[in-house]
Design a protein around this nucleic acid. Structure first.
Lengths: 115, 115
DNA sequence: TCGTAAAAACACCAAATGGTTAATTAACAT
DNA sequence: ATGTTAATTAACCATTTGGTGTTTTTACGA
């Protein structure tokens, strides 16, 4: 059982799934709509599995309309992922700004003691 | 061989590695500094492997100072990942805006209460 | 009722991931 | 030279992942 953030990032770590999300960001789409670009080199079963990963990560939800399963994007997990990244990327950027001067003046040892 | 964006997201899809990045966002740290919080339940070799993943994703770089390997964060891949997400999250939000209105008018839906 | 289409579920497989222990390299300190 | 510390490498193992083909389920339409 992975934590939600890990599941989100893991779901994003695949170009097929990212393409599906990109498609969904333009609006609702059925499974076969989402599958269509990939069917030249991938089976429908594989598509189902990819969608399952996205669903388990909470990135999409599937509805039901007759025999179709209209999927739509859920922005919430993406927002949380961005939040995490912004936090640490920005901190890193700041750090890069003053790192040189700081290290040069302060010390060169293995400083220990974290937050 | 995976594309850079996939490698970045895959690297982020692990709480240990995210903790390491968080630590590095506060400043340079040696491998053993980074390892320290995890050594109660993980071997040093495992830590090395995690760092390798981060390095291969271009998220960190390792220097050399005697027998130490000072690591520091590289913000660039994070920025690119955020860019991708912002793009599609925002598009998704628009879609969600419309969806929200739709759901509100249509039904009272089991949408999670967002703060 | 029968046929067909959309999607999922099942059983299987190869490769990647995340961990282990043990051995090795690299640099410093006696 | 020898020992010690930091870190990596190697060999191995279990689980997960991403794919396959086949079979079921679900709902429409003739």
């Amino acid at each position: 059982m992975k934590d939600p953030l890990s599941r989100t990032f893991a779901a994003l770590a695949d170009p097929t799934r990212r393409a599906m999300l990109a498609r969904l960001s333009e609006g609702e789409a059925n499974v076969s709509d989402l599958a269509e670009p990939f069917l030249t080199y991938m089976s429908p079963s594989a598509v189902t599995k990819h969608l399952k990963v996205l669903e388990n990560a909470g990135l999409i939800t599937k509805g039901r309309k007759a025999q179709w399963r209209p999927c739509h994007l859920n922005g919430e997990p993406l927002r949380e992922a961005v939040d995490w990244m912004e936090q640490h990327r920005v901190a890193g950027e700041e750090q890069l700004d003053r790192l040189g001067a700081y290290l040069k003046s302060k010390s060169k040892g293995t400083r220990r003691g974290h937050t």
